[in-house]
Design a protein around this nucleic acid. Structure first.
Lengths: 334, 334
DNA sequence: TTGAAAGCGCTAACAC
DNA sequence: GTGTTAGCGCTTTCAA
């Protein structure tokens, strides 16, 4: 509505095309011309009309970030991924459209399909079945944060859940625990399955296979940690591995309600390393994921895909964070 | 690149304009025509090119949501506001560009100024001084979530901090507390000032004025709750009002470190009603804000502003949530 | 190294 | 109720 490229061109005595090139850093314009145009542009307070630019170039400079609403509300982990995505997007000159939707199929795919964004970054757990076909028809570059069963060939950025599960097994084993219970995540999720299977595999390797009756399944919520606990506590395990921190928090609360406490009665390990882990009582031993790095990696891959370069899924390393919720067996504290 | 409006028009035997009107729900097209066009569009898999639409209409259908990165990381409260904004935006057919930036002045205002969005929703605490001039030059409709000193005339959506502070005062007074300490928020923030002044005013009304040496200032972080506690605990207050939940969490931790506990030794009240409050030990008495409602209200105001209607700042009610971190004085528990 | 010209796909007066 | 006609502001061949 205000200052257009034509104004800048006229003001600097060049054609519109040259002005355009100068401002977008085209190598072909003479340095003197470029700086003159830039000066005029700044002088006039010119800023490009994004819509026109998008229309002419066929690109939007935008990535759509699809997040399940429930997750952002309950799970700080998602906030970190978002942060990473925003940071990286900004660095590569993109803007981020936040799509906190994902559950109603209607609008999102449509808007996204055309003109909304150059690419899609999706929190895998946001995926309903319906979405999948849409993502497939959409020929947009897509990166999944976390794996998803329905899209096995997708480009993903994941944590090393396999290594994570094994780290926990080794840690508990080293502390002397031989009767260890697992509160697994929802087994329809690949990450939850991997944490469980790797943990069980490693325990078996360590000659301490975990019997069936010491395995329960939750849904990654605090509440399911609490209720899941009741189904295994009677077996008197000396340690419990909860497949995420929220369930671990539920376990700790449940133990308190049952008049027991960690780590004296039972050692407890989580997974995620959410910020709240430090503030639990006792502070939680857990597996650190790096959601910030995952978000950044997602954008890195996305940039590549948009430029038509070949890319491969990425796995971000994890590490064990030892805090006070685990302790060696046979060495009562206090 | 693929199916355009012209294709739809041709396919349904109408002009492009009619097709356009039919698809955008213009009341002037005959119902029969509309449904025919819509059918063809669906059939062809048409979806509108957003950029072209924006360019032609001069609107983007987008609001930019500006959030300080640190807040999203540390403060779940912000996640709730974002959720509210996204929900409401979706309902009114807008998309949300997340601007997790705000600290570097450079790019944000420029991109936002032209073509990026129809309006700005800003978390007030994101505001650096530099931003302010930019927001003023930008003639974009702007809604602040929370007040900001530098923009006293802005349209804002705030919580009723005044009422909140008074609710806390009355609650503690009713429980019999007469020696109450305050851990205030950073006094450069209007909300922090209001919570403090209203609390002090109400205590004075109740004939229990709070002396200077029982007032400390923190920065709304857990750490500052912990350190702030040390400066008041020697005075042996029977209750502490921390001006947000994060500081209250710090206070609880500090009390434990000092070998004391809430509520037996000291009652503790927070402000915000963050989800973690329930999981603290003991569960935290606090003032509930409704960030979800704030986010939604922000979009409601924004829609109005974009349509050129007059709007006024909104204040969202608060209420006291009583949990176990406060108890009557003189009645030892356990 | 620069300019001229042709759209990108759509909306919105303005006629009919 | 529907068609005609201009652009929206920019990028991008294609020539020069």
């Amino acid at each position: 509505m205000v200052v257009t490229l034509d104004d800048v061109a006229a003001g600097s005595g060049v054609s519109r095309s040259t002005a355009s090139r100068a401002l977008s850093g085209d190598a072909r314009v003479k340095a003197a011309t470029r700086s003159r145009v830039q000066a005029v542009a700044k002088d006039l307070g010119y800023s490009p009309n994004q819509a026109a630019r998008n229309l002419a170039s066929g690109r939007t400079g935008t990535v759509a970030l699809v997040v399940p609403e429930t997750n952002l509300l309950e799970n700080p982990w998602v906030a970190l991924v978002i942060t990473g995505v925003c940071r990286a997007a900004r660095r590569s000159g993109r803007s981020v459209t936040l799509w906190m939707d994902a559950l109603s199929t209607e609008r999102a795919p449509e808007v996204v399909r055309h003109g909304g964004a150059d690419g899609l970054v999706i929190m895998a757990s946001a995926f309903s079945r319906e979405w999948i076909s849409d993502v497939n028809t959409t020929r947009l570059p897509t990166v999944l944060v976390g794996e998803h069963d329905e899209l096995p060939d997708a480009i993903t950025v994941g944590s090393d859940n396999d290594e994570g599960g094994r780290l926990v097994a080794r840690h508990l084993h080293e502390l002397g625990h031989r009767k260890v219970a697992v509160l697994a995540g929802p087994q329809e999720r690949p990450d939850a399955r991997e944490r469980l299977s790797s943990f069980l595999a490693e325990m078996a390797l360590l000659d301490s296979p975990v019997p069936h009756y010491l395995v329960a399944e939750g849904d990654f919520s605090v509440g399911s940690g609490l209720s899941g606990l009741t189904s295994i506590i009677d077996e008197q395990p000396t340690a419990i591995f909860a497949a995420n921190d929220l369930m671990a928090a539920g376990v700790l609360r449940g133990l308190r309600l049952a008049g027991k406490s960690a780590p004296n009665d039972v050692s407890v390990v989580g997974f995620d390393n959410l910020p709240i882990g430090k503030d639990l009582e006792p502070p939680l031993t857990t597996v650190n994921q790096d959601p910030l790095a995952m978000g950044e990696e997602a954008i890195r891959l996305m940039d590549r895909m948009i430029d038509g370069e070949p890319v491969e899924s990425a796995v971000i390393p994890v590490k064990l964070i030892t805090r006070r919720s685990t302790m060696p067996i046979n060495v009562p504290l206090d």
